[in-house]
Design a protein around this nucleic acid. Structure first.
Lengths: 145, 145
DNA sequence: CAAGATTGAGTCGTCAATCTTA
DNA sequence: TAAGATTGACGACTCAATCTTG
């Protein structure tokens, strides 16, 4: 349910430390969602659907979540199998397929959000005043300043 | 070739920034290896094989790379198909299978290491004096101090 | 039985090719 | 032709079940 192999032999370089920390955090978040029948990927789709306030074409979802279209097709397949989302035809463009969140999807989304918030508080327990901001700034160095 | 969906809607939380930065870095590293027919996962196995100075049982590899045994079975399958590693029988325990790096594997390992080092320099270009150490410390907060 | 490895099924991603509609 | 979505094949993971050997 995790990310990449940890590759402990290469912990020296900074990127090793970064990938490892990220993996640890992601693992904990995924874990907190798994019991609810959710994942970060699925929750991300639900989040966009909720914030958009209505059905969205799959292509737009893929674009906003920075992934490939075929990935969204499969992700929505699983969400539909879970009963959290349905596909509806776009009346304005017959090529387009819209993802629409269900009642159950909305409920699941709210539960997932609470679980995530709780896990987040846990994760940030060891940070002192102002350290979060510092970390965010330093992480930005990887994105060109 | 990347990690998780980016989930731009949730950039606010610190963990979102962390996962995003990690994904960016990992993507660049993977990219620099892809042209050589390598990946971080594969290079990690080769690295352990080289540093160990001889064949290692698959179980030990899985343990050291912090992944599940079945994952190592498949990873070694691909490495073997690439001609970078071979499976050899363990004379001391007939249950055990050892992974052994080939000449081609060693050559590939060295090329991969160089590519990684070059990409690493690129990645660290925007860091000022002492910032790397600060980042490492802050990332450690996620692992309980 | 316990320890090694493998197999089968499932999740989350990629890419290249295809099919339908604009 | 280009834009939308899907399909098929693959990489890198997970877990549960199995097979062989200690």
């Amino acid at each position: 349910m995790n990310g990449r192999c940890e590759w402990k032999g290469m912990e020296g370089p900074l990127w090793g430390t970064l990938l490892q920390a990220s993996q640890r955090v992601e693992g904990r978040l995924e874990n907190s969602l798994a019991g609810l029948g959710l994942s970060l990927a699925k929750l991300g789709v639900l989040d966009h659907l909720v914030k958009a306030g209505g059905p969205i074409p799959l292509g737009r979802l893929a674009e906003r979540l920075s992934c490939v279209k075929s990935n969204m097709t499969q992700l929505v397949d699983r969400l539909e199998a879970d009963g959290l989302v349905t596909r509806v035809n776009d009346p304005e463009d017959r090529r387009s397929v819209l993802a629409s969140i269900t009642k159950e999807g909305l409920k699941r989304y709210e539960n997932g959000g609470r679980a995530l918030a709780a896990e987040e508080r846990e994760l940030l327990r060891n940070f002192a005043e102002g350290e979060q901001e510092k970390l965010a700034v330093l992480l930005g160095r990887f994105a060109g300043e």
